[in-house]
Computed example of a mutant assay.
Amino acid sequence: MILSCFVLSIMGGLIRSVADSGLPVFEIVFLRNVAGLIFILPWFMKNGFSSLKTNRPWLYGFRSIVGFLSMFTWFYAVSVLPLADAVALNFTSPIFGTILAIFVLREIVGIRRGMAMVVGFLGAMIILRPGLEEMSLGAYAAIFSAMTMACAATCVKLLSKTESTTAIVAWTQIIILPMSCIPALFVWQMPTLDQVLIILGIGFLGTIGHLCFTKAFSLVDASIVMPFDFFRLIFSAIVGFLFFMQEPDIYTYIGAAVIFSSSIYIAIRESRVSAAAAREKEALAQSLADTTSGSGR
């Protein structure tokens, strides 16, 4: 998880760098998806296109749409906001994910998780300070990116019941590529060699970062992994200071800590609820097995 945070923070710095060089954000998003597809080609070569067979094309389509919107607004936010500010606002994604879990996944959210969502919202208000500071378009983009990221994560939860992780990643890349090509054509300018190399770096780091992220969650519970996600803010602040002379104010750190604390609490509660449900299911199965065995005697 720490390696994922480090890699994704470097990727954020590269996005800011190539945007500062004059390449339009729509074009950056398209080229990043081209690079991402290049880096998953070995998977296609090994498994073949038959591994992409699915009965849920519409859900893949919706997941790709919200994924594209999340990627575009995130790239834009990183290109205009200090990296630490963009990452801090991005921590609101689990809050939106909890809201979606209520209405889409039909999960029951208790008073404690509800209060954690309110606390997370207050943390975002500390960073944005509406009424005291004028909210920028970049701040709105960062929050919208967190919302659409939560939508994409909810789609992945639904897809993962029947689809493999690699198939989900591959289908997303395949669908987003033509989707991101259309707006890129209207702002297209021939990238320089330096810009192409940076884009390849973004695609490579994005692939590595998300593989590390996914691996971390496959090894241990979310409640153990999530606290380390705060390293993203630390690494992003360092990258922003060293390469772009960005110095986040104290409100960014305070607000990020508040948001992150609420996100950690939500992750812990989800982990405990899932564990309790698993134990209850196991106990029920054991009870049925004992009953069946008894009736057999």
Rank of each mutant, 00 (worst) to 15 (best):
K161W: 02
S274A: 15
M149R: 00
Y60N: 05
M135P: 05
G36R: 11
L89R: 06
F186S: 12
L31N: 09
V220E: 14
L132M: 14
G131C: 12
A276H: 14
F44A: 07
F228W: 11
V34T: 08
I111V: 15
F213V: 00
T165D: 12
F68Y: 13
R129Q: 15
F243D: 03
E134R: 14
L83D: 06
A257Y: 07
A257I: 06
A35Q: 07
L59D: 00
A278E: 14
V7C: 12
A116D: 10
I254R: 06
Y140S: 01
T214F: 03
I2M: 09
V273H: 12
T54I: 00
T165S: 14
L132K: 13
W171L: 13
G123Y: 09
R32L: 03
S218W: 05
V66M: 08
A124R: 02
V118Y: 05
I199Q: 02
A170Q: 05
T98P: 08
V29F: 10
I99L: 15
A276P: 05
L8C: 06
F241E: 01
I175K: 04
A237R: 02
L31M: 13
T98R: 10
G203H: 03
K161G: 13
G201D: 04
K53P: 00
P178N: 00
V273N: 12
T92L: 14
S180R: 02
T92F: 13
T207I: 09
V25S: 09
S164C: 00
I126R: 10
V239K: 02
K281V: 05
T54K: 05
A19W: 08
A256I: 08
A77T: 09
V169W: 04
V273E: 15
C5Q: 12
S21V: 04
A88C: 03
C212Y: 03
I202F: 10
A141V: 07
W171P: 05
I259S: 02
V119F: 08
F103V: 15
I175S: 04
Y140D: 00
S70W: 04
T291Q: 13
